[in-house]
Design a binder for these strands. Structure first.
Lengths: 212, 212, 212, 212
DNA sequence: CATGAATGAGGCTTCATTCAT
DNA sequence: GATGAATGAAGCCTCATTCAT
């Protein structure tokens, strides 16, 4: 299919393709300049579309961020489902970590931090972020439990370690130009192995089950 | 200096007290509503000061964030110096972690994420953040080395684990309403102990040297 | 023509039926929300028609108001002609007054005020309004003259009283939620009777001839 | 006082002078082009003021209309109070009618119709219009009662005639270029005299007391 | 003929910054 | 020094109108 045909197909009818196209542009712009420094004009230029047209697909500029977060969540779900089909649980786990935290581009990391920041101001985004986090935790804990190689492994406890670790790596990637992601990931892998092997000491007191 | 004297100094022209007062207001406002949603009018109200007056002490609204980050860095340096005087290195380490990551309020965490986000847009803030991070790392590595209880302890490697972990805890505190900070901190403490005892496996490959 | 046939004619291309259908929708929308607060999308929804289609029948949104005023004028002419066939001049007069001023709905009154307001901005509408007014005056004066029961009756003078009175009743109906139309109409009827009976004093000076 | 000094006095402090200045500009613009066709830029030009500055004195563009209506109401109250001091009730009555309905400029009439039209859309303006109407009615009825020269005079009934008559004259003045205000006013005066003399027949049925 | 997606000018409003007092 | 009224450049969004299908 030619590019022109592709454009026409996109331009015609299919609203979800249109939405996706807009979200692509928003992703690019927000990652590049941040939500607050991106104007609807910037977006229009990036999406090769008039400003007014956005509002046929999204209620407001804020709704674009929400759409972005939602799409990211769906993509995660899809990716997991896809990789789980491979029948290699450990590979899937490492793959997910790699995809979402290790080999993340600086722009993507920046966008992630931006979204966490918006989460603290916008209830809708906060809700979507919480949902993503909950789904992520459920999957991780289940997967860690399945991969545990020793009875001493505490999947929930391990996730309580992994989750902030992964988030912190994203922050480092975004905010520190010289951040050594590889080193952090190597440490994370070693930690993961140790955890699955039951070689990580449980914390002394209660509180070993993460979150609510 | 008494509080009254302090107030008087502030009421009259002591520029550094004035700056501090303004930064206090900025901290409050930015933590409450975020940088982009705080207007100079908000700031003026919070600081009980005319909007025009800010510009005698700070170049611009952006400079306020920079001032905030700088002050935070100085405060960290001061706090460390103070606590190290106690002659209890382990207590100092745990105290610093508690002060900056464990017992952080939600507002403070939010502000921290906000600043990380701004770091990705504003080179001055990025530089200041990088400097803070470098100083933090140096101190942590030195302190971990001093506290190591076994030859297998790898201070730099341990820091490569602790640093993102702590950042991630801040993100969780800020972006997830139900985040269980206590559980994460308990895990961190256990990890720290294990690390200092050399019970954490080093990552297989190198990667412990900074680089990109 | 049956309703079904009418619908079919409308569904197919009969342009004048199409125009009427559009004007119906415009009347509904403008009465409900006013000219300036009605969007072409609102109109499209009301008329069950695409926005673009309006422009095949009317030049612009403004032209719709003009069309509305014109239709209203024609309807008035028709109604008068119809009622005059009854051979009851007095009944016709009272009927017209009732139809146009007494039993007017609030929405209709609102629309009338809206149109007067637009008259002051749009020359085309002003011209149409003036024409309607002129025809109305001619008919009223002629009818009053025919109904006069005493030589002292001054039809033109009486109309100079009736015309603003009727307009004012419409304004009251539109702008004052608690306006008592019935009371005003009762007064108007009494006034009309008195005028036809020559019991109304002529104004001292001239001034009964139009002109500015 | 020089114009420059005047400008300075106006520019300095006094917010109510500033509000008045803005309302003057709004009155001019709204009368000239109507509320919906006047942009904040137009207003800014007319008021020799930047667009942003309006919002220090009025919440929104709509609030300007409300301010205008309110000021008009207050002016009416003031004017009445002033004229009543003259000790000539009949002169006061005729003066008020002249001032507000007879010698009204076309622009003023246009603005009045515009406001009636807005009344049907904006509850705040509707409330203010209703209040003005109520005060107007109270004063008219009291004044008519005081001026009645015969026991047969029905002040409330007379007002139910006068009120729409006056409104209708305003509509005519605004919407009909050739409207003969003088003739209408002459009729109104004659009607008023007849009413005060008890020479107007009461309407047959009840309903002789206007509105609620 | 009809559609409805798309356009893009322009409206209202906000807010960082300035400057006369 | 300090004030706070004023500025004016954008920013988000709406909506009459067009035009490819």
């Amino acid at each position: 299919m030619t590019v022109a045909a592709d454009r026409r197909a996109e331009a015609r009818g299919d609203p979800s393709a249109r939405r996706a196209h807009i979200l692509d542009a928003a992703e690019t712009c927000f990652a590049r300049n941040g939500f607050h420094r991106t104007t609807m004009q910037d977006l229009a230029r990036e999406a090769a579309m008039s400003p007014g047209n956005f509002y046929r697909y999204f209620e407001s500029k804020e709704a674009l961020v929400l759409g972005l977060v939602e799409r990211e969540r769906e993509r995660g779900t899809l990716l997991v489902a896809e990789m789980e089909g491979s029948g290699d649980p450990r590979g899937t786990l490492l793959g997910i970590i790699a995809r979402y935290f290790a080999s993340i581009t600086r722009e993507a990391a920046t966008l992630r931090v931006e979204i966490w920041s918006e989460s603290t101001r916008n209830p809708d985004i906060a809700a979507m972020t919480a949902r993503t986090e909950a789904e992520s935790r459920d999957w991780f804990v289940a997967t860690l439990a399945a991969l545990a190689t020793a009875p001493g492994c505490d999947p929930a406890g391990l996730y309580a370690l992994l989750a902030p670790l992964m988030k912190g790596i994203v922050v480092g990637r975004a905010a520190l130009p010289d951040y050594d992601v590889a080193a952090a990931i190597a440490q994370l892998h070693a930690l993961l192995d140790a955890g699955l092997d039951g070689r990580l000491p449980a914390p002394p007191l209660a509180g070993r089950h993460a979150g609510r």
